[in-house]
């Protein structure tokens, strides 16, 4: 498909407790492991790749290990085992200096509780990452102003964090991460502390920014609708282990197990699934001169065409007929 992945994580483990190496590779359940060794495996044998320009979402309930996972990626939490290849080089092998360089130039993170410096104004907060890597004041202020404009905070340069609303504070956190122009942006549940309206606004903001700056993003969330909305691909975690990885419609349309099925049961499937998921082979006697639609079209958007057509709608990709959809399939899907 696309070129080399930005991030290639292989067999990552993070075990908390005494002599954590012992627990690596164990197949015991979390409970048994805790009883036998006193260790807690927060991340167990997780592998995935993130492609350039992709929004990769890691989703799980609290305690599933997703926040630990994202911290392992920049070694804010030291992984116990595994490889984290970032542009082909293993982050785990980096020494202190190299790690610092990576953090200063290539990776940036946005936190759930913002982590702003309360004693600095917005401009100085955004410029902080540039300041500690040693760029001169005029230069870093110029860059900070650019980024503030990007996130829509122009005019608030001299405000202090506690004068801003939660949503605006998180924009500052976002601007701080963007200011260093990283190759990879990590988000640790950035909108969980915000109220629902602001959260939606910020999600749209992320979508907009992703279009404008095209950064590769790893996004942690416990909110399925957020995951479906933002993610190009979703990794679902449970008790530290990977349960399923796939595109939003794969997760909703073909849950890997009961856990995921339960999870996605409330999702309005017609909003996520595409025609590919409901089309069927054309029957021999069916007329094949109905309207044409693409297989990646979300069902919701096809409803009008299909229901108003008096014959089966053809699902076609590059001139090839993949199948047909009639009002029966649509209604069955919506009624489910």
């Amino acid at each position: 498909m696309k070129d080399q992945p930005v991030l290639d994580v292989r067999g990552l483990w993070k075990v908390f407790g005494p002599k954590p190496e012992r627990a690596v590779g164990s197949t015991l359940s979390r409970q048994e492991l805790k009883e036998r060794t006193g260790c807690v495996a927060a991340v167990r044998d997780v592998s995935f790749t993130v492609r350039p320009g992709e929004v990769f979402v890691v989703m799980g309930l609290s305690g599933s290990g997703k926040s630990t996972l994202v911290r392992c990626l920049t070694r804010l939490v030291e992984p116990t085992a595994g490889e984290i290849l970032f542009d082909g080089a293993d982050i785990r092998q980096a020494d202190e200096r190299r790690l610092r360089e990576l953090r200063r130039h290539r990776l940036a993170m946005v936190f759930q509780h913002f982590g702003l410096l309360p004693h600095r104004c917005v401009l100085d907060n955004v410029a902080y990452g540039l300041e500690i890597r040693g760029s001169a004041r005029p230069e870093r202020y110029k860059r900070a102003r650019e980024v503030l404009e990007l996130v829509g905070l122009t005019g608030f340069e001299n405000s202090y964090p506690d004068q801003l609303s939660g949503g605006m504070q998180q924009r500052v956190g976002l601007a701080r991460a963007l200011a260093v122009d990283p190759d990879l942006l990590l988000f640790d549940e950035p909108f969980s502390a915000l109220d629902p309206l602001i959260r939606r606004e910020m999600q749209n903001e992320i979508i907009r920014l992703h279009h404008e700056v095209g950064k590769t993003m790893v996004f942690i969330t416990h909110d399925l609708s957020e995951a479906l909305k933002l993610g190009d691909r979703i990794l679902i975690m449970r008790d530290g282990a990977l349960v399923q990885m796939g595109t939003p419609d794969e997760v909703v349309g073909a849950p890997a197990d009961d856990y995921v099925r339960d999870f996605v049961s409330d999702v309005p499937r017609s909003h996520v699934l595409t025609l590919r998921w409901i089309m069927r082979e054309a029957l021999p006697d069916e007329p094949l001169d109905g309207p044409e639609l693409a297989p990646d079209l979300v069902i919701r958007e096809a409803v009008h065409t299909v229901l108003s057509a008096d014959r089966p709608v053809r699902v076609v990709r590059e001139g090839e007929l993949l199948g047909v959809v009639t009002s029966a399939e649509i209604l069955e899907m919506i009624a489910r």
């Binding site: 920049t74 804010l76 790690l99 610092r100 360089e101 990576l102 953090r103 200063r104 130039h105 990776l107 940036a108 993170m109 936190f111 759930q112 509780h113 913002f114 982590g115 702003l116 410096l117 309360p118 902080y128 990452g129 500690i132 890597r133 956190g173 701080r176 260093v180």
Partner: peptide
Amino acid sequence: VSPVTLEASSSLGATSAQ
């Protein structure tokens, strides 16, 4: 001092002295 803020600082590559 808030661990969140400290973590944010080290995620940006700050040394412990910084």
